[in-house]
Nucleic acid binder design. Sequence first.
DNA 1: CATGAATGAGAGTTCATTCAT
DNA 2: GATGAATGAACTCTCATTCAT
Lengths: 194, 194, 194, 194
Amino acid sequence: MGEKSIQKRRYILETARRVFVEKGFKRVTMKDIVEACEISRGGLYLYFDSTSQIFLEVLKLESEETDDVFSDSITEDATAADILILFLQEQKKELLRKEDTLTQAIYEFYFENQPGRKDNLLRRQFDSAVKIIERLIENGVDNGEFYCEDCQGTARNIMFVLEGLKISAQTIGITADAVDREIAYILRSLDAEI
Amino acid sequence: MGEKSIQKRRYILETARRVFVEKGFKRVTMKDIVEACEISRGGLYLYFDSTSQIFLEVLKLESEETDDVFSDSITEDATAADILILFLQEQKKELLRKEDTLTQAIYEFYFENQPGRKDNLLRRQFDSAVKIIERLIENGVDNGEFYCEDCQGTARNIMFVLEGLKISAQTIGITADAVDREIAYILRSLDAEI
Amino acid sequence: MGEKSIQKRRYILETARRVFVEKGFKRVTMKDIVEACEISRGGLYLYFDSTSQIFLEVLKLESEETDDVFSDSITEDATAADILILFLQEQKKELLRKEDTLTQAIYEFYFENQPGRKDNLLRRQFDSAVKIIERLIENGVDNGEFYCEDCQGTARNIMFVLEGLKISAQTIGITADAVDREIAYILRSLDAEI
Amino acid sequence: MGEKSIQKRRYILETARRVFVEKGFKRVTMKDIVEACEISRGGLYLYFDSTSQIFLEVLKLESEETDDVFSDSITEDATAADILILFLQEQKKELLRKEDTLTQAIYEFYFENQPGRKDNLLRRQFDSAVKIIERLIENGVDNGEFYCEDCQGTARNIMFVLEGLKISAQTIGITADAVDREIAYILRSLDAEI
DNA sequence: CATGAATGAGAGTTCATTCAT
DNA sequence: GATGAATGAACTCTCATTCAT
């Protein structure tokens, strides 16, 4: 596969991403993607075999591009609390962007595909986020910014709350205020000044 | 609609429920339900127009029958902590019963249907659960069982954690230990002895 | 399946038979049959799942209807030679009707499906034909009509010649004269007066 | 066409032959051949336009290379019976090698293509084989090895039996014993000692 | 000569939905 | 009310064939 097809692959993935954002995972057909990409029926099959495969590759691209989100937000002199708050704000934005996220598609995809597997991408992301938050809190505790008896427990708790908010945003709907309230609750429980 | 049709309706809903439990929401077709019910294709249309309608009615039945779960668990001399623990254990059981729940179907359904609407059944259940937990905690605080500065916030936090656990169970997979850890974390934060 | 669908089944099989006669087995698609039957795409699938299934059922019908061909030709006072000649003439007619036979389709079908299996319909027909011819020859020998040292061997030889003629008719082409010549050869080798 | 292209042509034909042996004629697509040859899609079209054309050329190559099979088996002092038996054994081997022959592909091809035409390759081979066998038998008769009233008829009969065995091997299946039985029957009818 | 990306026709299959009985 | 045959739209997937490079 030459340079050109790599670009086309990428083009398809980016276009498909928009389709998944719009329709979730299950409702998307190969035909949808073909039409969105304005390529031929057979043309798509030259690159991908199924919506599942496409989706997985979209996720891979996604994670490559967003891995650094965290590190981006860390500037030299940012305190632990700053970073945590930044992270939570980031999550808030994502949460409320409901119609413009892969979230729903991701959930739908994992409903059917290999839930519980160790190599589950989602799980790896969850676990690594927990670890990062844990270290952040530990830093904060060391600095006297935070008070916390069970840093790992707290990190996990935060992540589950975020998951709860995320799924709620997609199902029962959630307001910016509600998210703020939860963030405030979390930070307060860390004894941090907001 | 005669007595007979009411029974048939109910029969269809109960059978359809099993189908939704097994396959989620989206993958279920009218044909699936027709076959599970062993009725005729046309026959089903006499009662229902779509899987969405059927699903909504299944949910309605469900909520009628399980509304009392909470009250059931409240005996005369049970303390607030007892009841809360009982509730959380109940949720744990539900969580881990992954393959035998409507959970996934519910999420799938609300992904597509009117999320965010005020009359959203899911939302009403969520809100009412928050209120009940809030009152429970207040009782506990009054009794000296719990310590808590923001009872409503805590109740909400608990519910979001539970939501987070629920969706995690369906996507990244979750162990009994992990659930126990979260429950313990919640109870500890209430200063309750476990 | 009611009376009506049985008729429709039969109608489809009879129509499909014509299609197979015309195009052989492999070139026939479900679409071809749908169009020949003038029914809807989905309609055909109500009755049959694949061209293979349809073809097998066509063969079944065929064999039910032609089983008696042999017995038909046996009248009270027909001699063994009469019957054998009749049979060979029958085969000749069939052979030369090249464009109007299932022969080619049958070969194509068995090329792909279970060749060599004991329950292979074709094989059963072959074996039973051998037996009948064998008995016929034995009768002829008893009557002094035929002379033959190895009746079974001769019967088998006749059947293989017929098979050879049949496949030749479909591939290299064969004339009525050529068939006559072979029939004469067979009869002469039985010492029978023609 | 340069030296190089001639070699490539030949390479394609030899590779394609293997594909036809494996899959028959009809199931083979241009794609199959492209993949087996590990050349480009367009590349194949530079040399051939269709599977039919390729198959015909494969047959041509085949017949060029196997014309001599017969002559090979004729040594100075071999008797007519020796040669006939050798030939029949050769045919037997071919027959039983069911999975490793072009036989099926050839039949499939001629089912669709110009059966009955005078210039039909298959027919020429058949006719020439009849002639050779006829001469062989005549020699045998002259030598006193064989007894035979109608040499041409017998030669034809032998060829049709062989055709019958060949097609039977591909459809109803046939054992080595069954072939031996037929060969013995043929030889016995020539009064030859086996 | 050779490549392989691209196209589009066409086959298979499944279902929601209707309707005569 | 109930049945289930029938329809047709929609999807998946595969190839023959072309064409710019």
